[in-house]
Design a binder for these strands. Structure first.
Length: 292
DNA sequence: CATACGTGGCC
DNA sequence: TGGCCAAGTAT
């Protein structure tokens, strides 16, 4: 991939980029941050309606900060990984209190906020503030593995190495670099996908090292597959779903209905309490936090 | 560095 | 059906 390939890539992005809600002109840093947190491990189609609700309801960090944790968890709905919602609420509180209600533009400052890691900090810096910084998510890692390294897929992640790989690709001009970052992600999301890549539609087909190598299969270590059925994650999800769906606190007996294994059930309820996703009321019932 | 952490769609 | 995958982070 050379400079000409990247020019083809950004031309393609200008022509075909999906019309996602958070890409509309005028989206604030707050809007970008909320979208990035919601998109962590979560498909675009599920995020878009929730993001629109949140922007209408909480257009500023201070507005979200003023809501209770329970309200926020209810509005998060079934996006998954609800600790993200709690961390976003905490981040909003810090932004409102310490940063004048404006999402910081500095990567290191962003990294200090809860729920914001190596990917999200740079995504906000690039997409909200037009900075030149490498944005590395699973899509970009796959695109680089193929187009640059000629492999079938990315190996195990290494933040340092992955950031350096992408930094080498970015042009000097910040606005152009930010567009390249967005285009690399878009390419991985819609063309250079994990299964069944649509190489015939690829704007960097000619410069792709994977093509030049004869499209070898991925030969790295097997990726760890996250099991779900029967895990604590499933049980925690079932418990939380009861509380999200109830305006009133739920009794222990009510929660006991969601899972037959009492040991696992109690362990999960306890872990939810520890995580601050559930609170116990004065009379021993259970509820979302901050509502009773 | 490996693992826990939700949820749902697709083949 | 069940594995695989989806804009990761914290520990």
């Amino acid at each position: 991939m050379d400079a000409a390939d990247l020019a083809d890539l950004t031309d393609w992005f200008d022509r075909t980029a999906r019309d996602l809600a958070w890409r509309k002109p005028g989206t604030t840093g707050w809007g970008v941050l909320v979208s990035e947190i919601m998109l962590q491990q979560t498909p675009v189609a599920r995020v878009e309606p929730i993001w629109l609700e949140w922007m209408a309801r909480w257009p500023l960090p201070s507005a979200l900060a003023a809501a209770s944790q329970g309200e926020v968890l209810r509005a998060w709905g079934k996006l998954g990984y609800p600790r993200r919602a709690l961390r976003l609420h905490a981040a909003a509180t810090a932004i409102a209190t310490d940063h004048g209600d404006v999402v910081p533009a500095d990567v290191d400052t962003l990294l200090g906020l809860p729920g914001i890691g190596a990917y999200t900090a740079r995504a906000v810096a690039a997409f909200a503030y037009g900075q030149r910084c490498p944005v590395v998510d699973t899509n970009v890692r796959r695109v680089v593995a193929r187009a640059v390294h000629g492999a079938g897929d990315a190996g195990p992640p290494s933040t340092t190495r992955d950031l350096a790989d992408v930094a080498k690709l970015l042009p000097q001009d910040p606005a152009t670099a930010a567009k390249v970052s967005a285009a690399l992600m878009e390419l991985g999301a819609v063309v250079c996908v994990a299964r069944g890549p649509r190489c015939a539609d690829c704007p960097v087909f000619d410069g792709c090292a994977w093509q030049h190598n004869g499209r070898p299969a991925y030969d790295g270590p097997a990726k760890a597959v996250q099991r779900f059925a029967g895990t604590d994650r499933q049980v925690r999800g079932l418990l939380l779903d009861v509380l999200r769906g109830s305006a009133e606190p739920a009794s222990k007996a009510r929660l006991d209905l969601v899972w037959s294994d009492a040991g696992q059930r109690d362990r999960c309820l306890d872990s939810l309490l520890v995580d601050g996703l559930v609170e116990q009321t004065a009379n021993g019932e259970f509820a979302l936090p901050g509502e009773h």
